[in-house]
Amino acid sequence: MEAGKRMEKVLEKSLNQKVKRRSFLKVFAAAAATSVVPVKEATAFSFSKYFQKHYKEMTEADKKKVFARITKEAKEKYNTSINISDPQAIPGVKYAYCLNLKACNGSRMCVTACAEENNIDPDIGSYIKVLEMPIGTSNTERGDLFYDEHNLPKDGKYYLPTQCNQCDNAPCTKVCPVEATWKEKDGLVVIDYDWCIGCRYCQAACPYEARHFNFKEPKIDKSKLNTQQSYLSNRVRSKGVMEKCTFCLHRSREGQYPACLEACPTGARKFGNILDPKSEVAQIFKHKRVFVLKEELNTMPQFFYYFD
């Protein structure tokens, strides 16, 4: 007996009635069609977001539409008006960050300020990790993230805050399969959150553990939401995309210091334009001996440490 006839016999037996192939296929097709229709849920499907272009290919008109969509979504979700800016790289500027390890006392005030400024999901916590290191090594494997918070600084230890180093030879931008992350002209490594597919290759490639993944929809406290946002830095992300420190792009491209610098109680952090010989960071290069982490990997970080 050929296969079609065998199928009919089996169905007849199970349904206890004579089945016609045509009527069976009709029912099957209808059932398949109804199961494919998208269901309204928390992460609703949006045609404009699905067909959105890569940030680097957007025209001014495209950007306007995208920012309007983001503002509308934020209004629906948080019932607050937000301000999406899109500051461009200032010509003749290349950012560098310098940190005085003699001054850092492990206060973690930069960690808290970063979390508030960048609308970070509490599960990710913050873009900054402060390690308690034994004096004599810069090997971060020997650092302790969970150090005792009292009686700081402890004898024989120094405190090493780590975050994205905005590497000149960044491994993360090389491994991204869709070019959702790239290095801008002013040195910042940025992510287009709407282009990222969440494969986490960049997280595997980064030697400094600077890239973070949203395993779930970020839950930001409405009262703590920072409404001054920008497309490439601190706007609220969605489930399944990467995020990282951007040296507070929305602040630094407007001439302000990053939030971590302003929060530091000892003034250990210094930030500015390395191409300007009169800036604090250029003066630090002139007068102090700076080093970077994991220099042997040739990532060429733009985050420099020194002991005063």
């Binding site: 006392n105 206060s107 973690r108 599960d123 990710i124 916590g125 993230l145 969970f146 918070e149 009292h150």
Partner: peptide, 20 residues
Amino acid sequence: QFSKWIADPLPKYPWIDSAR
């Protein structure tokens, strides 16, 4: 001479208990 400081608490990472 500076007195000793008390740091801000760590963020509540979901993996913190198993890591500790």
